[in-house]
Write a protein that binds this DNA or RNA. Structure first.
Lengths: 237, 237
DNA sequence: CCATGATTTGTACAAATGTACAAATCATCC
DNA sequence: GGATGATTTGTACATTTGTACAAATCATGG
């Protein structure tokens, strides 16, 4: 029984054009980049008039800003929750895996109810990062760095013998791998000749977690590699 | 729009204008992306007239095409050479490292005499990939897939117990990490609070090689993880 | 039913874009 | 020195761009 009089529940029912524009812009930006998409493209995809975009978001940059502000907070909160859970895991290896999962999972599927999940927004971040978008760069640095530091510090606690700087490198590689997987999934399908599905986000995440946990545990660069012990011969550097 | 900084005067007395245009375009595209750079930006950076760009390369796409054709062949040849050398390495771990190095090294510093090295071109590829550039995508698929397959197959020979599809995933992550490192090196410096220099390409490469070799040796997803027996990194032949 | 504020529409405009092309300049060989 | 072909220059043009703004439409409370 729908009661039209109640003004409280109006949020879900309205065909909100503002939302449609945000959604269309997110989709188009994440595929084609910021510069290749015009305001008219967005308006058309959202079934709106170009003027509406100006009305709701003032400028094209403002639209991008709104997209970021919409996603950043929920995504980081979800990461913090998972990170706190991961902290309680006893076994070192299990804990490492939980930490990495806490970082990666919200990037693939957002914990919020925003349609399309976090994967699209993460792909958007990847593209903006590659394009050197200033608006995005500013937000990212001031919004994600805290989470990144928490993530790095927590790994460092689990792997105290590895210099923090090297953990930074490896977690940087993780983010790059994550971005690239979302940007060009078809390459995985192609190179595996169909044996792997690059578009299978869940499987991609499992592969990424497994791969990253292993790389994190590698010996530090300035330390001798323990696994080399069996090869008593020469060691090239 | 493009940042007015950079080195505009570098090509003041260039005898070969075609080369100067190529070089300027490569630089600008790799920083700002394809769509954000106008033909006039390129011409100004090269100290040329906008009409010259049309004369030498017909269209903007033609210019990008020429950049790719200029770099792809030398880079892949260098990779093949290094891969052939890597094949002769006896020790499995050393061979893996040599293979990864053969893949990564030409991407950081091109073996050819082209000024600026391969890093700039690799960053260009990263940005074009993120933007979903069609011209670039077509060339990449038909030029680099052979090398990628050779790379993957060679790793698979050294790690026969890991399904080829999983090696595809991991080498895909490698490329993503490589791209991202070249795209946003300042993030490494920032997150490491100065302990690491993201712009130090040589060191980045060492970190990437170490990290990747470890991730490649991780147990496959459908297999039980041997490292859970607490013995770190000990792998029997 | 009308008043009022929020939204949507249509249109306009200056700036920037890729490309075309004729004229001007240059290099090189007879 | 003059001819010839390659290159550079300057300019023009049709589109597309982001944004502005007045008019039209809508929603809603009195």
């Amino acid at each position: 029984m729908v009661r039209p009089s109640a003004s409280d529940e109006s949020a879900a029912r309205k065909p909100n054009m503002r939302e449609a524009i945000l959604c269309a812009a997110e989709e188009l930006f994440s595929i084609n980049g910021f510069n290749a998409v015009s305001v008219r493209d967005i308006a058309q995809a959202a079934g709106a008039n170009p003027g509406s975009v100006t009305y709701h978001f003032k400028t094209k940059d403002g639209l991008l800003l709104e997209i970021y502000q919409r996603h950043c907070e929920p995504m980081n909160r979800r990461r913090s929750e998972l990170l706190t859970e991961a902290k309680r895991v006893r076994d070192v290896q299990d804990r490492l895996e939980a930490i990495v999962r806490a970082y990666v999972l919200p990037a693939f599927s957002s914990g919020s109810d925003l349609a399309g999940g976090g994967a699209r927004f993460t792909r958007l971040r990847a593209v903006m990062s590659a394009e050197g978008n200033e608006v995005a760069g500013r937000i990212i640095a001031q919004t994600f760095d805290d989470t990144s530091h928490a993530f790095i510090d927590m790994i460092h606690e689990s792997l105290p013998h590895i210099p923090r700087a090297e953990i930074v490198w490896r977690s940087h590689f993780l983010l790059g791998a994550l971005y690239y997987t979302l940007v060009t999934p078809e390459r995985v399908s192609r190179l595996s000749r169909g044996d792997a599905d690059g578009f299978d986000a869940a499987h991609a995440m499992e592969q990424l977690v497994r791969s990253t946990v292993a790389s994190l545990q590698a010996a530090a660069l300035d330390q001798p590699d323990p696994s080399r012990r069996r090869a008593v011969g020469q060691i090239k550097t």
